[in-house]
């Protein structure tokens, strides 16, 4: 499906009343994040990069994301989120074991590093983890589908949809303080909200989006 909001860029509102200094600082920091070094081995990092690309691809025609760096930072800080499935180790351990197991699974199935697989092959490996249908012995200490549901998906998806490029692509209003919204009923839109390309329904004026 094509990007429904190709002319909408949430970052264009950065200097408007929709953003405050606190938010500007937070998003600036996120966008300038670099992948921390020395946290993962080269193979683990290459595997994670591929997992990220398959599970959370960047939308076309949008500035690149720093999702990968955010996830590596989570691993580095061993961040907790207030609950941990009893079959899983802590964040950092779970990811390291999981990435090694994904690599082993790829080697076992396709005789190639996970990072070198084509998209279809990589997806097949990931699908087997999701379904719990794995062969590599590395999974013995890590239940694959629990790892997938409780660690891989929430971490990747939370970080990815913290990215302005993804906000723009989904037509999300993004930061909104001090200015919030005036027109909140359905088919009503403030001038500083995204306008969908195909849209015919939101009537009225102005017909474009402005900051």
């Amino acid at each position: 499906m094509a990007d429904p909001y190709p002319t909408y860029d949430v970052l264009a509102k950065r200097d408007s009343a929709s953003w405050d200094d606190t938010t500007r600082a937070v998003v600036d920091r996120r966008l300038s994040l670099k992948v921390p070094e020395g946290v993962l081995s080269d193979t683990q990092l290459a595997t994670l990069r591929m997992v990220k690309a398959r599970v959370c691809p960047d939308p076309e025609g949008r500035p690149p994301t720093t999702t990968l760096a955010m996830v590596v930072q989570r691993i580095e800080e061993d961040s907790t989120e207030g609950f941990r499935h009893h079959e899983l180790p802590r964040t950092s351990d779970a990811w390291r074991r999981g990435l090694d197991a994904i690599e082993a699974e790829a080697q076992l199935r396709f005789g190639s590093p996970f990072a070198d697989l084509d998209g279809g092959q990589a997806d097949a490996v990931l699908r087997s983890i999701e379904d719990g249908d794995v062969r590599a012995p590395e999974w013995e200490s890590l239940p694959p589908s629990t790892f997938w549901t409780w660690r891989v998906i929430p971490d990747l998806v939370s970080c990815h949809w913290s990215q302005p490029s993804l906000w723009s692509a989904m037509g999300f209003g993004g930061p909104a303080s001090p200015r919030g919204y005036v027109r909140i009923a359905e088919n009503r839109r403030d001038p500083w909200e995204a306008l969908e390309e195909r849209s015919t329904s939101p009537t009225g004026w102005p017909r474009h989006h402005v900051r």
């Binding site: 009343a17 303080s177 001090p178 200015r179 919030g180 919204y181 005036v182 001038p191 500083w192």
Partner: peptide
């Protein structure tokens, strides 16, 4: 209102 006159595009209306 939040943002006062700086946020006039919202506050003048609401």
């Amino acid at each position: 209102n939040m943002g006062g006159w700086r946020n006039w595009r919202q506050n003048l209306i609401v």
